[in-house]
Amino acid sequence: MSDITPDLVRHLGVLARIQLSDEEVTSLTGELDAIVASIAQVSEVATSDVPATSHPIPLENVFREDIPGDMLTTDEALRNAPDSDGTRFRVTAILGEEQ
């Protein structure tokens, strides 16, 4: 059994910025519980002597030279923006009224 609870799912929704409905929380709790139960087996073989692999092909020191290029115009940057003032992206208030 995993420790997936509706409260945890709701908290994960906040962290992930997804406004989950109660129905979604309920169904996700059940689904995640089953999925987590089936994938938790990774810890069986992941002993401390096994190093982690983050990149399938090991490379290092891949750098770019410090030469300007590849810039977007403001129009290109704003082309897909839901809202802007013509030069900057506009978002609604960051803080709520109580803050």
Binding site: L12, I39, A40, V42, S43, A46, P51, A52, T53
Partner: peptide
């Protein structure tokens, strides 16, 4: 998430090595 990383993501990266 904090507290789960080692058991899940970290372990999965080790399975990758195996």
């Amino acid at each position: 998430s904090a507290g789960y990383y080692d058991a899940y993501y970290g372990s999965a990266q080790k399975v990758r090595t195996l």
